[in-house]
């Protein structure tokens, strides 16, 4: 399997904070892979995803996309974001434009595409995400699920090979979540890779091919869900045993 995204020994501490958020994180994502990233709040999932998109620069370590070490100059970042797309938890943070069509066109135009190509990308991404009927609508008039799909279309219009989703399904109802997972399936069928940060263990078990568990800025486990959820040693090490049993350990409030 071709490795598309590789993170090597990533260390990061936010300015002004004494506590590092990432402590030597290493992981990889293969072409066409569906990987779930789980971990408690504050475990470093979002920070890791921001590194994978070049938003944050690590104190140590590197991110490779398709075997190339990524740089942080404007041109390098443009090439990076052409290949790695990131969708956020709250679509309201992502949708800046008053019009759906204009918002989706933002990424393609930033890639330097012509208006006609960008228009085509908008149409394709909208069709893939089922939001073609919303293109003329104002973004503020959309429902939560529609906003999430439009936000996804805005990222997919850049045609990334890797999609990072930071708890993008967490605010959706079960039906909309299924809809989003169906879109993810179509992307995977096109050979794209998806890294989904989530707290939903049902989605992890049923959708992911591999699960990466993080705690306190470190990767504790990286295994297929069937193996992870049946291995008592792995469950104990990752703290998932309590979640699976539905019992809080005595040392947690």
């Amino acid at each position: 399997m071709t490795v598309l995204l590789e993170v090597r020994d990533l260390h990061f501490c936010y300015p002004g904070s004494a506590e590092p958020v990432l402590r030597g994180v290493s992981l990889h994502l293969g072409a066409g892979e569906k990987v779930a990233l789980i971990g408690s709040n504050g475990s470093g999932k979002s920070t890791l995803l921001l590194h994978c998109n070049g938003i944050l620069r690590p104190d140590r370590g590197q991110v490779r996309v398709a075997g190339q070490v990524m740089g942080y100059e404007q041109q390098a970042l443009r090439a990076w974001r052409r290949q790695v797309g990131l969708i956020f938890q709250y679509p309201d943070d992502q949708l800046f434009s008053a019009s759906v069509a204009q918002d989706i066109s933002f990424g393609p135009l930033n890639l330097g595409l012509s208006d006609s190509l960008a228009r085509q990308r908008v149409a394709d991404a909208a069709a893939l995400c089922g939001v073609t009927h919303l293109l003329a609508r104002p973004t503020h008039a959309l429902s939560g699920g529609e906003k999430t799909r439009v936000a996804l279309a805005g990222v997919l219009a850049m045609e990334p090979r890797i999609l990072l989703a930071d708890e993008a399904l967490s605010t959706l109802d079960p039906w909309m979540r299924l809809h989003m997972l169906a879109i993810f399936e179509r992307l995977v069928a096109q050979g794209k890779s998806i890294l989904l940060a989530t707290h939903d263990l049902h989605t992890v078990r049923t959708w992911a091919e591999r699960v990466i568990v993080m705690r306190a800025g470190q990767v504790l486990a990286d295994a297929p869900p069937a193996q992870l959820f049946s291995d008592p040693v792995l469950l104990t090490r990752t703290g998932l045993d309590a979640v699976v049993k539905g019992v809080l350990p005595p040392d947690r409030p």
């Binding site: 998109n53 938003i55 404007q74 970042l77 443009r78 974001r81 052409r82 797309g85 990131l86 956020f88 800046f96 434009s97 019009s99 069509a101 204009q102 918002d103 066109s105 933002f106 990424g107 135009l109 930033n110 890639l111 208006d115 960008a118 228009r119 908008v122 805005g154 990222v155 850049m158």
Partner: peptide, 13 residues
């Protein structure tokens, strides 16, 4: 994350 470098370029309607 979508390539913003100081100009909010969007398609004309």
């Amino acid at each position: 994350s979508r390539g913003y470098y100081g100009d909010l370029r969007v398609l004309p309607l």
